[in-house]
C-alpha cells in the first residue's frame, strides 16, 4: 500500500515536472515566433494563441477565402492556426455581409465579437518611405482607394504623400494587396507576442 502510494506520488511529480517543462518550452518558443496576421476579432497575439483550438471553422466560412491555416515545419505548434497573407488575399471585413463570418463561427472567442468593423485591430499598416511612390515623386493613391476607412486611416500631406493613422487603421491589409509597388510599400504589421496594444 505504501509502495503504491509512493509510486503514485512519483508519477504525479513526473506529470507536474513534465507539464511545467513542456509548458515553459512552448512558452519560450512562442515568444520567439514572429506574429502572423490573424483574422479580424483577434486582438493581442497572446490572447488569440491562448484560445485558438485549430478547429478550422473560420478558414471554411471565410467568404473571400483569405484565411489560410498555417502549416509550416518551422513552428509545429502553430500548425492549423488561421493566418492571412495580406499581399496575396487580404481580409475585406466581410464587405456587404451582415456580420464578420469568422467571428460569428469561432467557438472559443479567440476571435472576439466587435462592436463595429471600425473596432477591428488585426495589426497596423506601416509605410516604407524608401519604396512608396509619392515619396519618390510619383503620384499614387492605390492604398487610399483600397482602404475601407480611407478618409480616416490614410492621411495625405500637402505633397500627396500618405501616412497611416494608428487610431483608425484596422490592419485588414487591403492596402498591402492594392499597393502598386513591386514589393508592397505599405505592409500590415501584426501585433507580436507580448504586445497587447488594444485601443478599441
Amino acid at each position: 500500500m505504501r509502495n503504491l502510494r509512493r509510486r503514485h506520488l512519483l508519477k504525479a511529480a513526473g506529470a507536474v515536472v513534465g507539464g511545467t517543462l513542456i509548458g515553459g518550452l512552448v512558452r519560450v518558443r512562442l515568444s520567439q515566433d514572429p506574429g502572423r496576421l490573424r483574422p479580424p476579432g483577434a486582438f493581442a497575439a497572446d490572447d488569440f494563441a491562448s484560445k485558438c483550438i485549430r478547429c478550422q471553422q473560420c478558414v471554411v466560412v471565410c467568404p473571400r477565402q483569405c484565411i489560410i491555416p498555417e502549416s509550416s515545419l518551422a513552428c509545429f505548434l502553430s500548425t492549423g492556426m488561421p493566418a492571412i497573407d495580406a499581399r496575396q488575399n487580404p481580409c475585406d471585413l466581410c464587405a456587404g455581409r451582415e456580420q464578420l463570418e469568422c467571428i460569428a463561427v469561432c467557438p472559443t472567442d479567440a476571435l472576439m465579437p466587435v462592436i463595429s468593423r471600425r473596432s477591428v485591430r488585426m495589426g497596423l499598416a506601416r509605410i516604407d518611405k524608401q519604396i512608396c511612390w509619392p515619396y519618390q515623386g510619383i503620384a499614387c493613391r492605390a492604398c487610399w482607394h483600397a482602404c475601407p476607412f480611407a478618409t480616416d486611416a490614410i492621411i495625405f500631406d500637402p505633397l500627396g504623400r500618405p501616412a497611416v493613422s494608428a487610431s483608425a487603421c484596422v490592419g485588414c491589409g487591403l492596402c498591402e494587396h492594392a499597393c502598386l509597388a513591386e514589393t508592397a510599400a505599405i505592409t500590415v504589421e501584426p501585433f507580436a507576442h507580448g504586445t497587447a496594444d488594444i485601443e478599441v
Binding site: 506529470a15 511545467t20 509548458g23 512552448v26 512562442l30 497572446d46 491562448s50 484560445k51
Partner: peptide, 11 residues
Amino acid sequence: LIASSIAEIPV
C-alpha cells in the same frame, strides 16, 4: 493541463 496553463496555449 499544467502545460496549457503555463504556456498559455491549449497544448
